[in-house]
Each structure stands twice: as C-alpha cells, then as structure tokens.
C-alpha cells in the first residue's frame, strides 16, 4: 500500500499504485483544489508540490509519491486563515473562473520557496506551463509579485537567524 505525507500528515492510500495522484487527492482524500483540466500534463490545473517541486498530479502515478511530502493548495492555509500566497490572490482578485488558480498558486509556492527573490521575468517563465483561458494572467502575475514581497521580509529574517 502506498503511503505519503500529505499536507504534513502521513496518509495511507487505498487506490492502486498506478492511479494518478490527482484522482487519489480528489476522490480518496476529498482535496478538491487540484483540478482535472486536460489529463495530459499540458494545462497545469492539477499542479501540486512534491518535495518542493511543482508536478502535474494528473500524469503522476501515486506510486511515485511514496514516502514523499505532497502539498496541495489546502496545505497553504484555510478560508479563515489564508496563507500569504492565498491572501495575495484574494487581494489582487486574481481569480476569474478560478479553475487554473490552484495550479498556478502551487507552482508559484514552489518557486517562492526555492527563490524568494524571484524576478518578474523568472515568475513569468516559471508559470509558462499553466494555461488560463479567462485572460487573468496579468492579475495572477501581480498577485504572485505581491505574495513574494509579503513573504520576503519574513524569509530573509528566518535566513538571518
């Protein structure tokens, strides 16, 4: 049986090892933030973070998450207590239909964790695998910039300790 650390908690997976991680997240654990978009790893709506790296959960069999840290959007905060990235997306009103947003946020989360000082160009390049059909790309970029600025003093302070 596959076992992974999902948003900080160790969870056993009942589904067969070749089941896409996305289905396990949504159907077995009720974590519905990651979306099914294309099922081909070409739109980004299903993106989650595994051990710090953004991955397409629709093309990742759950067996590859064995004993690894899987983070979904639910792991970044709650509606009552949103994390800084979620806060920034709300403040920037970056979601229109919202379908692509969880994937965008997870890739942005991976980027800002790895590179808190990411430039606008780096953010833009990093998000290239993500499609948004509403056309809110500029707001999304603004939200990520805002989140980066909000998170940086804290991470710099932490690094200094």
């Amino acid at each position: 049986m596959t076992s992974m650390i999902l948003n900080g908690e160790r969870r056993a997976v009942r589904a067969a090892p070749d089941t896409p991680l996305l289905y396990v997240l949504r159907e077995e654990f009720g974590l519905n933030a990651a979306k099914f978009g294309c099922g081909l790893g070409q739109c980004g709506a299903c993106t989650v973070v595994i051990d710090g790296a953004a991955v397409f959960s629709c093309v990742t069999p759950v067996m590859l998450a064995e004993n690894r840290q899987v983070t979904t959007l639910e792991g970044l905060g709650t509606a009552e207590a949103p994390g800084p990235l979620q806060r920034a997306f709300i403040d920037a009103q970056a979601a229109q239909c919202g379908y692509c947003i969880p994937g965008m946020m997870m890739r942005a989360h991976a980027l800002l964790t790895r590179a808190p000082d990411a430039s606008d160009a780096a953010i833009r390049a990093e998000l290239e695998p993500h499609l948004c059909r509403c056309g809110t790309q500029m707001r999304i970029l603004r939200a990520i910039r805002r989140a980066a600025d909000a998170m940086r003093p804290r991470s710099t302070a932490e690094a200094g300790r």
């Binding site: 099922g39 990742t60 067996m63």
Partner: peptide, 18 residues
C-alpha cells in the same frame, strides 16, 4: 488514465503507470 497496459519486468511498472 489509471488503466494501462500490463507489462512484465522491472522498470516496466513505471512505464505502464507513467
């Protein structure tokens, strides 16, 4: 997705699933 060819041999479970 999730219903793939069954293939024998080491490494091929990864192929079948991924």
């Amino acid at each position: 997705a999730g219903m793939q060819a069954a293939i024998e041999g080491a490494g091929t479970d990864l192929y079948a699933a991924t």
